Simulated assay, not measured.
Amino acid sequence: MAVANGKEAAQGLRIVAPPLVYAVLMLGVPLLTILAYSFFKDGYLTVVREFTLENYRAVWADPIFRTIMIRSLSVAAMVTLATVLLAFPVAYFLSFVVPPDRKALWIFLITIPFWTSYLIRVFLWKVILGFNGVINSGLKSLGVIDQPLSFLLYNTGSIVMTLAHAYAPFAILPIYVALEKIDRSLLEAGRDLGESRAMTFWRVTLPLAMPGVLAAVLIVFIPVIGDYVTPALIGGGKIPMVANMIQSQMLDQDNRPLGSALAVTAMLIVAVLAALFLALNRRFLRVRQ
């Protein structure tokens, strides 16, 4: 028995080893490099490999970093809230209303945005919201406005709208998977006990779908923090986020140690917030149960 278990473990290790090595090389090594650079000193057009904590002191003492980090967290929270609120009805409709033989088609349609480049989708929103874009041109042709609306672009709202559209499929799919796993007999039992559709949804469907909602929140929130294309194009560079600040330090100012310290600090803040969110979610589920 022990020999058989050993053979299975060895076989599993051989299967897992290639993707594990790939993940370590492609993800672990760059992260360790960034971590190491954050403790080095910046020289003129070079990096001085001497240990220092000055980069982290500069990051935490910089009021600009605190302002931009708070803005990034706020934008990410708004994008996550908007995305999940829009994704849940779509996932619910797909799970409970669409006939089983049509669900594959709907999932196929939801994944169509992945066929195009993320950069192209951002540019499309700039065309839609621009000064001479689709919305302004349409309203002018209908006689609703005389002058183009200037508030549609280069603001927080346009950034949130663009990011919510870009990450919507990432939120729809995990919520749909969680809804599909719900035993329909539990919903029927709630109805048999006299609960309304709304109360059945609140007491049964929503708690059972929370793992999918939680996955959607993390899948959307974490990458939005690191987005720099949308703030640069849709925000016009007027509303920089922490990724834009890191890019500026790394490329424009060629200060790789300080840029690395900014990146590590941002990752730590996001990791702490994600851990707190997971802990609060578990506590919420225990209370509901």
Rank of each mutant, 00 (worst) to 15 (best):
M241P: 05
I128P: 09
T205W: 01
R66M: 15
G6M: 12
V160F: 09
V242W: 06
T67R: 14
K41N: 10
W106S: 08
R49K: 11
A82E: 08
P18A: 09
P148D: 11
Y167A: 04
N55A: 08
Q289G: 12
V79D: 00
E180W: 04
W202A: 15
A209R: 00
K41L: 11
P257Y: 02
V59W: 03
T116K: 10
I159H: 07
A164R: 01
W60K: 06
I128N: 03
I64C: 13
S95K: 02
R283Y: 11
M241W: 02
I68E: 04
L86A: 15
T67V: 07
V213T: 08
K103F: 01
F51A: 14
T52S: 12
I234W: 00
F277Q: 11
V16C: 14
A271V: 07
M1R: 06
I110Q: 09
A215M: 06
V59A: 02
V264P: 02
P257E: 03
Y176E: 01
L124Q: 13
V98A: 08
D227S: 11
A36N: 09
K41H: 05
L173N: 02
H165T: 10
M267H: 00
G143E: 02
G130T: 07
Y176M: 05
N132F: 13
I225L: 10
V59M: 08
A216R: 04
I175L: 05
A164F: 01
V229L: 15
D183W: 06
S137G: 15
M26W: 15
S158P: 07
L153I: 14
F39M: 11
D192E: 11
A104R: 13
R283Q: 08
R191Q: 12
V204A: 05
V29Y: 01
I112H: 01
V98M: 09
L258S: 01
I120S: 14
A178T: 00
W125Q: 00
